[in-house]
């Protein structure tokens, strides 16, 4: 297909997706607030940039990264790659045989999270609001480590076929315990970071991995076991972001004690 045509198609899709937001914002602006938006021209230009940027971004992902990412997920989960010969598959299943899958899950989770635009937006805002106490990169790396751990554990769960809710419940308990000890200012941000990580880049990549695993591991069904990776990817960033806050807090107080 013509690349230009493709791009226009993505752009019209993006505009269509954004339409409800625009209608709601301008509806409330004109009917309820009834006050001119400050710097209207600049805001509108910004909106155009966001739409154009998102369309280019999605189109680029579709052309470059999703095909190869999905292909690699298939190849890495292929029993022929894992066991060498197809004949061995039905006989034995060791979770250790899937080491490369866990490694791929962790690294692709980390990498896609760094490129995730919504997380970048929240990180910029957090740096601005905290007056630089929380850095854009610190937050992004903390979240990316969380997603990496989460997705690696999620693939392990699919391979072993253990129930999803046990993992999630243990995760919740860790979150609760951390909440007690974390500096209060970070709690809301940490809770937010769970939801923002799984967006345009991570979801399609991770879904391909989950589906590939669930359809090739003997005894798993893609319909039942393919789900759940996103849940892991939204739970673990909360734990790592609070951990990041606790470590920075601890180091700051220790430095203060030393200087006294």
């Amino acid at each position: 297909m013509n690349p230009m045509l493709n791009l226009l198609h993505t752009l019209s899709d993006t505009i269509f997706d954004v339409l409800p937001i625009v209608v709601i914002i301008f509806g409330f602006q004109f009917l309820v607030i009834r006050r001119q938006i400050p710097h209207l021209g600049r805001v509108l230009l910004g909106f155009v940039y966001v739409l154009l940027g998102l369309a280019l971004f999605l189109d680029g992902l579709e052309i470059a990264l999703f095909p190869i990412g999905k292909l690699m997920a298939q190849q890495l989960t292929d029993p022929v790659f894992i066991y060498g010969k197809i004949a061995d598959v039905a006989m034995t299943l060791h979770w250790q045989d899937y080491m490369y899958v866990y490694l791929f899950a962790a690294s692709i989770g980390f990498a896609t999270t760094i490129a995730e635009p919504s997380l970048l937006a929240v990180a910029i805002k957090a740096q601005e609001v905290s007056g630089g106490a929380i850095g854009v990169w610190g937050l992004r790396i903390a979240v990316a480590i969380g997603v990496a751990l989460g997705i690696a554990l999620g693939t392990f769960r699919i391979v072993t076929g253990t129930p999803l809710h046990y993992y999630i419940m243990v995760g919740y308990i860790i979150v609760m315990l951390q909440t007690i000890f974390t500096p209060k200012t970070i709690i809301a941000l940490a809770y937010d970071s769970g939801g923002v990580t799984t967006s345009t880049v991570t979801v399609p990549m991770v879904a391909a991995l989950g589906l590939g695993l669930a359809s090739t591991v003997p005894g798993r069904s893609p319909l039942l076991d393919g789900f759940g990776l996103i849940a892991f990817a939204s739970l673990f960033p909360m734990i790592t972001v609070m951990g990041y806050a606790q470590i920075s807090h601890w180091r700051a107080t220790r430095a203060l004690k030393k200087s006294q």
Partner: peptide, 28 residues
């Protein structure tokens, strides 16, 4: 070739998005 072209679009798109974020979405 496609990988490079697509990556170029992603980089350009992300740049525009962040620009638009600061100009449009955040102030709004």
């Amino acid at each position: 070739g496609e990988l490079l072209y697509g990556s170029f679009l992603v980089v350009l798109g992300l740049t525009l998005f962040v620009q638009g974020l600061e100009m449009g979405l955040f102030p709004l």
